[in-house]
Design a protein around this nucleic acid. Sequence first.
DNA 1: CAGTGGTCTAGACCACGAG
DNA 2: TCGTGGTCTAGACCACTGG
Lengths: 267, 267
Amino acid sequence: MKSDSTLARRPAGALGDAGSGAAGAGAPAFSPLYQQIKALLLQSLQQGEWKPGDAIPSEQELAARFRVSQGTVRKAIDELAADNLLVRRQGKGTFVATHAEQQVQYRFLRLHPDHGDRDQEGPATREILGCRRMRASAEVAAALQLRPGDAVVQVSRVLSFQGVPTILEDLWLPGGPFRGLTLETLTTHPGPMYALFESQFGVRMVRAEERLKAVAAGDAAARRLQVAPGTPLLSVERLAYTYNGVPMELRRGLYRTDRHHYRNELG
Amino acid sequence: MKSDSTLARRPAGALGDAGSGAAGAGAPAFSPLYQQIKALLLQSLQQGEWKPGDAIPSEQELAARFRVSQGTVRKAIDELAADNLLVRRQGKGTFVATHAEQQVQYRFLRLHPDHGDRDQEGPATREILGCRRMRASAEVAAALQLRPGDAVVQVSRVLSFQGVPTILEDLWLPGGPFRGLTLETLTTHPGPMYALFESQFGVRMVRAEERLKAVAAGDAAARRLQVAPGTPLLSVERLAYTYNGVPMELRRGLYRTDRHHYRNELG
DNA sequence: CAGTGGTCTAGACCACGAG
DNA sequence: TCGTGGTCTAGACCACTGG
């Protein structure tokens, strides 16, 4: 095994059929084999070789493809599963995670009813207030890493729980990847918006950052949420990312917290 | 290896010198070996065999002690490290995590300055408003899994950033484990409160849940935080747990969010 | 230098799911 | 019954830390 072990320590790019040419340009950048495998798998996910919901090849197949042991592939997959990009199912295979799964819908929504759980509360009703293409403001452009004036799509909507309007939010999406997104598409599609983004636009949100503040309801927001102007609301600004840390959505929400709360786990 | 593999599949309790007698009473409860090892390590942590900051025995030693392979111990430690209970340091050893480390201070505080980072902002100044022993209300008792009327310690304090009072919070701690906690102790001790709890009371907080709401400042809170009554504030209710899911602290905070925000990562 | 955790391999067997 | 992921072992070598 001595020679194999030595050969295994090769820089990314020298692996299997995924070689990308110039490997030694500048940075030394050696990394563990399983990290290289992880990067290759990530690349396949990103390029759509396997789509959300699909099964990826078995560990044995991948081990053969990359010329490494199954254990090394396993460790790479373990990390991708920990990042919620893949889902392992014993006896069945390993699958590309999707926002369309029944169990983990609204994975990014942290608002919960004060009493009872989401299932008891029932599904949210959604009302799309608008959807229009526009030019990115400096602020939106900065968040989405675009140039000011680039095309973006803005969506406004209200989510209601048990008939009570609870969330008012605006979304901004880069115009390129979301070409063809219309009010029609949004109102017609059932299920979470992120599931729509996956199936119709091939954009999978894998991670997000939120910034919360307490603010007073302005007149317009107060009307939409049916509260008195000045009522304290939770302001939630979200930046959502696809693979490789590319920002793909800016979202600004106002949450009523009279019957709900934002829940967070600290590890 | 056939016979070894078979022997390895034994119920918890039949392992090494950690045997606890009756193993087959009722539940079948078989679990992977590494989970059993993890439980045993957890038990040692809980019982204080290794204190925060200490190094635990090497993987080889633990493997010998539990009569399993190093790989199995490794997997158990991996999970404990993922839960932030242990910290691995290559070349040095594996250590019991502590809230006293410089790098990860305020691990549970999610409030960040809007501009710049915490380091630029400098450390918070703390003012203890009060510390008294009292009987648990029904609400506090329920949260801490005590009986109403049991002894608890209540602490009130204000945290200021750059001279601006920003966080006003009340804490309730179970009277038993925190016997001897006084205003004197609190005001004297430098560093995070959770570090004090570790060193003086042997209570290590490992996990917490928070519930956030937007509320209007009452008169008393407004005075303490130097804002106008009715100003929207972020209400943060935290329940913090030690090992094995035992709740050890209830905390109710009001955060000013005019120059700060609550930051959250969604995976 | 010795000792620690980190990586990699190879092979065995177990548990689960589906035909 | 077969193929999948899940567990466990044993041994090799690498990378880092500190004396």
